[in-house]
Design a protein around this nucleic acid. Structure first.
Length: 212
DNA sequence: TGCCAGGCCCTCTTTAGGGCCTT
């Protein structure tokens, strides 16, 4: 049995707050939040501010509510990322607009000579297919549109990862019910994000049928 | 000095442009 099979039912939903949009432009992670899902249940969480080695600008302070003062005494990125690397080791990963979080994850892990082997799935690309009629596919909009649990906190890493986890589970539930899956495997969700919108229904009917 | 993300997706498309998402 491969590592993927062993961990097939465990998924990490993660969210980074960062000093900007691109690690290639020298931007760094300032907070990581994540929840660990096993068979659709939250079994563990991770949240940590981290000192990025530079001051963050006022836009980021306003956007996240994370101040330079809060970061001043936080452990450095390298220390936090070593711990987080152990937390996610071997598991599949989910993020809202995963291309953004995967770039920062890879960049921060590269700085500590680590990498991650898990597969990434993007809740935003999947939401565009599962909820085509939503006003838009921002995380906050989808949370309100589907009345998902939240405590009113947005743009903080743990809160966003928790809301993304609820979105992920709501989409799995929707697909499971609508297409009569026994269960919806991670790789079906991942493939769904790459399926053209016109063939979503055909793809899910075929995958559900293959399960029977 | 001046510049500054990148991948997906739609369309008035593919010899391209621009909106959506993430901070």
């Amino acid at each position: 049995m491969s590592a993927t099979d062993l961990n097939a039912e465990t998924t990490i939903v993660l969210d980074f707050e960062t000093s900007g949009l691109s690690p290639d432009q020298g931007e760094r992670a300032i907070e990581i939040g994540a929840v660990k899902l096993v068979d659709g249940e939250v079994v563990d969480t991770f949240q940590q501010l981290m000192y990025p080695g530079k001051r963050i600008n006022s836009f980021i302070e306003d956007y996240t509510g994370i101040s330079n003062n809060m970061l001043k005494n936080a452990p450095p990125c390298e220390e936090v990322m070593r711990e987080f690397s152990d937390f996610i080791d071997g598991f599949n990963l989910v993020a809202h607009n995963a291309s953004f979080d995967s770039r920062f994850l890879d960049a921060e892990l590269r700085r500590i000579q680590r990498n991650q082997q898990g597969e990434f799935a993007c809740s935003m690309l999947i939401a565009r297919r599962v909820y085509p009629d939503a006003p838009n596919h921002k995380l906050g909009t989808l949370v309100r549109y589907k009345r998902l649990p939240n405590d009113g906190t947005f743009h903080r890493a743990l809160a966003d990862s928790q809301m993304t986890a609820h979105l992920w589970l709501a989409m799995i539930n929707e697909i499971k019910t609508s297409f009569s899956f026994r269960h919806v495997p991670f790789n079906v969700m991942q493939q769904l994000s790459r399926t053209t919108k016109s063939s979503v229904s055909h793809f899910l009917h075929r995958e559900a049928k293959n399960q029977r």
